[in-house]
Design a protein around this nucleic acid. Structure first.
Lengths: 358, 358
DNA sequence: TCAATTCGATAATGCGCATTATTAGCCCAC
DNA sequence: GTGGGCTAATAATGCGCATTATCGAATTGA
C-alpha cells in the first residue's frame, strides 16, 4: 500500500533543501539568478544516492521536457506476412541508432489491427504522445492519418520512399531504381541479353521503382523488356522456360524458392541455364535454402538513418525561437542497395538459347 | 510557437462543460454520485471528434493511471554478439502478446553499455518509470540491480530460467534439461551408444542445464558421458573423430557449421558417420547452411508468455486493497523445447565404430 | 552607515489528467 | 413550506517535475 516512489520532494527533505533545489542540481542548470553552492549540491547528490531516487518520466514529460523516447509504428502487423524478417532488420538499425542517441524505442503494438493493418487513428493517437517523435514503416499509410500528423506538426519519418505529397513527407528510402538497373549491367556484362522481369505489378513504391529500374536498364542497353506476371508458381515457371530467358529478375515477394524449384523441375538448371537475380532479400527464406544473387536493401542502415533524422526533426521542432535554429535536416535520404554475390548468377553459356531480338 | 496540443480543457470549452465532465465521458466512468446526461455526453463526444483530441499519456500516468506500456530490457547489447537472431524471436512473441494485450512495448535502448552489458542503474532507472512493468532478458544480470527492483516492488519478469534467489524472481524459461535428455533418447533409439557432448562449460543457466540433461540421459541409459571442450575448432573436430563418436550433442554457440566442416574435412560424413544434434537454434546461421537436427527453444512462446505474466503482475500490483485480488499468477513457467527433424541425424550404421564400453 | 549588489536559495505556478468533494436545481412527501 | 432524495453537473485537488518569480542574508561601495 505505501508503495510510494521516491520523489524530488523526499530527496529535498533528506538533504534539507527545497524540491526546486533538487531539480536544479539534477538538471545541472542555473536559471539566471539561481545559484547552488558546491556544498549544498553535494548534500543533494548524496541524498539521491542514498534514496536511489529516479525521476518520474511522466512528470518530466508533463512539465514540458522531452521523454527521450522515439516511437516506431508499423502499419502492417508483423505476423501475418513475413514473420520478423521484414521489419526485423530495420529494427536492428533503429536500435543501434537509439543506443547512440541515448533514446528509448517505443513499439506501438497496441493499435488494433483492422483489415490486416494497424490503425493510427483513435487509440493510436492517444499513444503517440509519449514519444517525442515517430518512425513509420509499412506501405499502407492512410491519407487522413498523414494529414493529421502534418497538421499537428508531430515529428515523424517514413522508412521507405514516399512518392505522394512530394516534399512534405520526410523519409529514408532505398534506391531500388538504380539497384535494379545495375543488375542488368551485371547480367549484360556476363553475356545475357534475354532478361525477364518476374513479379506481380503492385502500386507500392518498391515495385514501381523496380519496374522503372528494369525498363530503364533494358532501354539503355537497347534490350526488350519482358514481363512475366502470373499468380500461379507453376504457370510462371512454365512461362519463364517458354520465353527462353537466360536470366530473370525476381521480386522477393514472389516466392523465388518455389519458383526456381519449378523451373528446375522443367529441366532448366539454375544458374547454368538460367541466372536468377533477386531484387531484395528473400521474404520467406528457407532453412537451408539458396544463396540468392541480386541486391539487398540496406535495412539496418535505413533504420539507423531514419532514427537519426527523426532525432534531428525533434530537436529542430523544440528549439526555441530565441535560440539559433540548427540547420534544417535533409528531409529525404536515398540509400544505395548493395549487390549480393550469391550462387544464382552465371555467365551465359552462349549456345543453345534463342537469339536476342534487339 | 503556439503549438498547443488540444487538451480536455479545450474540449470542455467547446462542449460547454467542465474539464472533469470530459474526463468522465472519456473514461466512461461514473464515480459514485456523478451523472452525465446522454445529451451532454453526446456534445462532449462531438467536440472530441471535431478537435481530434487525444489524451496526453504522460498526464494520464502522472494522475495515477497506467500507461499500458510494458518495457523490455536486454542486458547484453544486441549487436556485438549474435545480431538479431538471438533476441529477435523473443521479440516476435512479445510483440504478438502485446498486440493481444493492447499494450505498447518500450525497448530500453538508452542505457549506456559498459563492458558489453547495459547498466540498469542510474540513467536506466530513470527510464523504467514510464513503463508499468518490465521484461528482462540476458544472462548478465547484476545482483544489486535486482535487489533494487525487488525493493521498489517494480513488476518485472525474466526471460530465461533463474537459478539464484529461488522463488523470488519471476521468470519464463525453457526446459533445456529434459530437452537434452530427450535427444539422447532419440539417438539411442537409432542405435547410437557412443554419444559425446561438445561445448564449453559456462556458468550460464542454459549450459548448466544442457550438461545436466546430458549427464542424466546418459546415466539413465547406462552410457558414459564424454565431454569435448576445446577452444579451437580444428582441434575439437580432431578430438571428435578420434573419440569415435557416432553422435554428438553440440551447443549452438560453438560454431557448429565450422565444426562440422572440419569434421567432414577429416573424412567423417555427417550424418552417415556422425549424427550431430544441436541443442538449440544456431546462433550464427549461415545463408544456405545446414538444416540442423536437435531441438529448438520456443522463443516466441517464451516471449509471449513472459509478457502475459508481466501483465498479470502489473494488474495484481495495482489492484486496490478493497477489490478482490485476482489469483496470484504462477511466478515460474517452464516451457518445453520442440525437437527438430533436420538433416544431421541418421541411424547408426553399426559396423565400423568402436564398441561402446558401457 | 545605508543603499546597491551579489549570493543562495525558496515559494509558487502550471503541465493535463483522474478523482473527490461539493453544489445547484428540482420533485416529492409529510 | 420544508426537509429529504434525486439528478446533473462543477470546483478543487494532487500526481512529480521544470521553471519563474521572489526573498532574505551577506557582501560590497561610497
Amino acid at each position: 500500500m505505501p508503495r510510494h516512489r521516491i520523489t524530488q520532494a523526499d530527496v529535498a527533505t533528506i538533504a534539507g533543501v527545497s524540491q526546486a533545489t533538487v531539480s536544479f542540481v539534477l538538471n545541472d542548470s542555473a536559471p539566471a539568478g539561481v545559484r547552488i553552492s558546491a556544498e549544498t549540491k553535494q548534500r543533494v547528490l548524496d541524498a539521491i544516492r542514498i534514496t536511489g531516487y529516479s525521476a518520474n518520466p511522466a512528470a518530466q514529460r508533463l512539465a514540458g521536457g522531452l521523454t527521450q523516447i522515439l516511437g516506431v509504428f508499423t502499419y502492417e502487423s508483423t505476423f501475418p506476412r513475413s514473420g520478423r524478417g521484414f521489419y526485423g532488420n530495420f529494427l536492428v538499425g533503429i536500435e543501434h541508432a537509439a543506443e547512440q542517441l541515448g533514446v528509448d524505442i517505443l513499439l506501438f503494438t497496441s493499435a488494433r489491427v483492422v483489415d490486416g493493418r494497424r490503425q493510427l487513428t483513435r487509440d493510436g493517437w492517444q499513444r503517440l504522445g509519449v514519444a517525442d517523435g515517430c518512425l513509420l514503416l509499412g506501405q499502407q499509410e492512410d491519407r487522413g492519418e498523414l494529414q493529421h500528423l502534418l497538421d499537428t506538426n508531430y515529428p515523424f519519418v517514413f522508412i521507405g520512399k514516399r512518392g505522394s505529397d512530394r516534399g512534405r513527407l520526410p523519409y529514408v528510402g532505398a534506391d531500388y531504381v538504380s539497384a535494379t538497373t545495375r543488375q542488368i549491367e551485371r547480367l549484360v556484362a556476363l553475356g545475357h541479353r534475354r532478361i525477364g522481369y518476374v513479379g506481380l505489378r503492385g502500386t507500392d513504391q518498391p515495385t514501381l521503382d523496380r519496374i522503372e529500374g528494369y525498363r530503364l536498364g533494358m532501354k539503355e542497353r537497347g534490350l526488350t523488356a519482358r514481363f512475366v506476371e502470373l499468380d500461379d508458381v507453376g504457370a510462371t515457371a512454365a512461362e519463364i522456360v517458354d520465353q527462353g530467358f537466360t536470366a530473370i529478375l525476381v521480386a522477393p515477394e514472389n516466392y523465388p524458392d518455389e519458383l526456381v524449384d519449378e523451373v528446375e523441375r522443367r529441366g532448366t538448371r539454375v544458374p547454368s541455364d538460367l541466372s536468377v537475380l533477386l531484387l531484395g532479400q528473400p521474404h520467406h527464406p528457407r532453412p537451408g535454402g539458396r544463396a540468392w544473387s541480386g541486391f539487398s536493401i540496406p535495412r539496418e542502415e535505413m533504420g539507423a538513418r531514419a532514427l537519426h533524422l527523426l532525432s534531428r526533426l525533434v530537436a529542430a521542432d523544440t528549439s526555441r525561437a530565441g535560440t539559433r535554429r540548427p540547420q534544417p535536416p535533409e528531409l529525404h535520404q536515398m540509400l544505395a542497395c548493395v549487390d549480393v554475390e550469391g550462387s544464382t548468377l552465371a555467365a551465359r553459356d552462349g549456345a543453345d538459347h534463342r537469339t536476342e531480338d534487339a
